[in-house]
Design a protein around this nucleic acid. Structure first.
Lengths: 338, 338
DNA sequence: TGACGCGATGTATGCGCATACATTGCATTG
DNA sequence: CAATGCAATGTATGCGCATACATCGCGTCA
């Protein structure tokens, strides 16, 4: 499939337009002064031949690819998909194309993907979270590729962050539940092992409970994957331990908890309070509507794309920005009746 | 950000290893015969210098990028996200990187994106549906870029298809409802304008109803965007028209219908039957669990990646494959009581 | 032992483009 | 009218790599 072989090249356009390749290059890149007539002849030739510049050759000559990379844990998570969707749209509108890879939560694999991204010469790279192999940063710095870690905010992070403080975001949740009188709360957490976001959310819940003189016993924390079925199972365990409120690490886990509670005939929120995290659009529609922490994935995606391109084009250096989160109280949380 | 400038090049590696660049290239590409000792020296040099080949230069020299493109309507749709996730994973495992763009259902924009993909020299391209500008195919053929249209199956399509027959997939749904005694059925369809999948699903419902001697009046079809809130509104309209069953163009619309029905105090399925399409993982968990049409997005993504790479590497030509869909009957459909 | 073949490696070239530098032509100025 | 300057364009080069072709060295066989 020697696709390129017969595709028209800049030289073909130059001949067809009766100019030199330099002139063709100039009209394409809008550089230098060009006679209107020459410009027009070139543009017509381009159109007529369906000429398309060769990005690889361009990258070689310019040392720029106009490509942005993103490596995310998975697309099977609506909130990441939403963020990437915004990232792509913004990048596209700024003249950049998206190179996307999924790491499947595997840090070693992520490192390999980062190297691939460097190979492809991405001008900037988006990563998720602050938990990465050190070599990731070493390589990116060596290659001078601008990069940003999203979905987290930590002033001490090695790279610039565009995201929110996962631990602190849980404070409002805990405060809310405590105010409602809950003192035996459980947590259905995402898997913490290679996931600083999930870990920090647990940390946030625990520390804030402590702040209120309460505690989160180890047995009241259950770690599970991003899926409904395991969440249902886990909820039953927590109920056996007599919790009156369940803080979930994300909305999908919360859906599982809510559905299982209903299946078991528990009233929500009268018998059990449940909170989510992410505030997916479905959450507001459920019955009862889910109390959740709203994070602005779209804003993060946009900001990341804008910052990266600003950095690439020399307009500004990468800088961390902390995004707000907001507890949205709906119908799955209520006063503790016990 | 002249990132590349100071990055080690093949020449640096050659020097460090005491060989020529040709030898370096050979060990990298595993070509020709290389003395074990030479190979090792090269590999050590690569490691030591953190050498990374320049994909652009490679593309120039080889007329291949080892990149696969995908242009999808949006990522804010779990089923596409799932399919793309599988596509990426498969492509990655075959040595290809994913270039992803979202068209936002805009065919003109899609054409522009296709041209960008050709610029980037993608070796293969995945598209969604069969509704595209003719120029899309003209360009892809001219550039000899292998491509495939997914999420649809039409033997008459201009490009190879890997997907299912959207119209025919609705037959089982209609048959099911008719068997249950429904004769006044409504449809909440996705937007049909620039979307052959949504359109075909409407066509399938209508033609199959006709087949049973029933009909789907214009007024019983409501077109709406992919979201819950508009679906709730639309459901009320259909209820006013006395429908006993509602066929939805996708699961998200079905969620809206189900939730609204519950809000209005209608019993599902006793008072109203509802069906979805896509069978998202949440659908089986709802209460009542949603009757839906299962499509295998993961299989489509995998198959597309495999076929494209097979074509690129000359192992096989692109060929259409029809994927099955399956009606999964759950609890939102029941006998018509009227 | 000399011719030959083959494995291992090096040399040189071109992929398509951007761009520094050279060149040309023309208007402007004294 | 000659000198000057600048706008418009062309020419030549290199970006980093793969690879065709040339070369070298060594074992093999007659």
């Amino acid at each position: 499939m020697k696709a390129r072989r017969q595709l028209p090249t800049q030289t073909d356009v130059a001949e067809a337009a009766g100019v030199s390749t330099a002139t063709v290059s100039r009209v394409i890149n809008n550089q230098g002064a060009i006679t209107p007539s020459a410009r027009q002849r070139v543009q017509e030739a381009i159109e007529r031949l369906n000429y398309v510049p060769h990005a690889g050759a361009r990258a070689l000559a310019m040392q720029r690819t106009h490509t942005l990379g993103a490596i995310i844990p998975t697309l099977n998570n609506a909130i990441f998909a939403e963020g990437i969707n915004a990232f792509e749209r913004t990048a596209q509108s700024l003249g950049y194309t998206l190179l996307l890879s999924v790491s499947q939560q595997d840090l070693q694999h992520e490192l390999a993907l980062v190297i691939k991204m460097i190979e492809r010469g991405v001008d900037g790279l988006l990563l998720v979270g602050n938990m990465h192999e050190e070599a990731v940063f070493d390589r990116l710095e060596q290659a001078e590729v601008s990069h940003v870690c999203t979905w987290a905010y930590d002033p001490a992070a090695r790279a610039a962050n565009i995201g929110f403080d996962n631990a602190q975001s849980m404070h409002a949740v805990v405060d809310h539940l405590v105010t409602l009188g809950h003192h035996n709360v459980g947590m259905l957490a995402g898997q913490v092992q290679h996931n600083d976001r999930a870990r920090d959310r647990v940390v946030g819940v625990r520390s804030r409970l402590n702040h209120h003189g309460l505690s989160l016993s180890e047995a009241n924390i259950i770690e599970l994957e991003y899926a409904i079925e395991p969440s249902r199972v886990a909820l039953r365990q927590l109920l056996n331990r007599g919790v009156t409120a369940v803080v979930c690490g994300n909305d999908v886990i919360a859906y599982g908890a809510l559905l299982e509670a209903q299946t078991l005939g528990r009233r929500v929120p009268e018998d059990l309070s449940i909170t989510g995290f992410d505030d997916l659009s479905l959450s507001a529609q459920l019955n009862p509507a889910l109390t959740s922490v709203q994070v602005n994935a779209v804003a993060m995606g946009k900001a990341a794309a804008r910052q990266l391109t600003d950095a690439v084009e020399g307009r500004a250096d990468m800088a961390s920005v902390q995004m707000p989160t907001q507890l949205v109280v709906r119908q799955t949380t209520g006063p503790c009746k016990r």
